[in-house]
Simulated scan of single mutants.
Amino acid sequence: MKIRRDGSRISKFNTFLLKRFVPDYENVKSDSVRAAYGYLEGVLGTISEVFLFVSKLIIGIFIGSIAMIAEAFHSLSDIVSSLIVIIGFRVAKQPPDPEHPFGHGRFESIATLVSAVILVILGIEIARDSIERLIRPTPVIVNIFAITVLILTVILKEFLARVAIDLGRRIEAQILVADSLNQRIDSLAAIIVLVGLIGVVLGANRLDALAALAVVGFILYTAYDIARDASNFLLGRAPGEDMVELIRLIARSVKGVKGAHAIFVHDYGTRKAVTLHILVDKNLSVEEGHDIATEVERKIAETITGATVDAHVGPA
């Protein structure tokens, strides 16, 4: 299967890295290749976040800015998120076993939920400190280093967001697309902190704490958004109408099939379990009906990569 590329500079950058670090990188249905994509995004994110965390924390403590310190721990949560991405893909690539006949692909969504919980805990802690700072304002010293780090954060976060979006779309990985949203919200949060520090320079000391609370809002929204998508996937979200109609058309294209209904698709990441009922002439023998069902299963499995198909036969 050919991967999706849009010709952008980010896509070309990703392709450059993939060609050098991911063997057979275009085989995006392979569990090991999918895992390698996740590792690549996770490593890029971890390296960037370690640099940002250390820089923001040191500067935040030095200038006494609760908003900058909040941003530092926001970056720390992103380090954890990047590590969770790596662990999630490592577990998800494990082959099926007797206890998990459809593989471990859903672990990606479990890892996403863990990331959301961490974000909520972090947001609550920062909110508490910010409210205390609102009640009892303390002096904040703004310098060129703080401004530079925040501007660098905006640029770097937008770059990482685009990298994650491109990689996530190539392999249709929910966890990477979710991480790209997290990166983009981080960029907006850094802008708010920057505005807060400018407000401090102009004499509005409480703007620093207000900026920190705004960052908390971004953190909690990110947690809610990625948790909602991951939960829907784990709870067995219904397939789209396009998928159902495709399966119905494939089934009806087989000679002898007069109808198809009760179509269900259970998504396990790179693997899918498809069940459906097909209608055949009631005068056919059991063997003839079975042969038709086998052909339906074969054609659907050929079209939908990673699908295990079970077609039940009924009289028309």
Rank of each mutant, 00 (worst) to 15 (best):
R4T: 08
R4V: 10
D6S: 08
K12W: 11
L17V: 01
V22S: 10
V22M: 10
Y25M: 10
S30Q: 07
V33H: 09
G38T: 08
Y39W: 15
E41G: 11
G45M: 01
T46V: 14
V50R: 05
I58Y: 12
S65W: 13
A70P: 12
E71K: 00
S75H: 11
D78G: 05
K93H: 07
K93T: 01
P96F: 03
H100M: 03
F107C: 04
E108K: 01
I110Q: 01
A111L: 05
L113C: 07
V114S: 11
A116R: 05
D129C: 00
I131Y: 13
R133A: 15
R133L: 02
R136A: 12
P139W: 12
V163P: 02
L167H: 05
D179A: 03
I185P: 00
A189H: 00
V201C: 08
A211E: 06
L213F: 08
I219L: 11
A227S: 15
F233V: 14
R237W: 02
P239I: 01
E241D: 13
L246Q: 12
I247L: 13
G256Y: 06
G259F: 03
A260T: 02
A262W: 09
V265Q: 09
H277A: 10
V280I: 15
L284G: 03
S285C: 04
I292N: 13
V296S: 10
T303K: 15
V309W: 13
H312P: 06
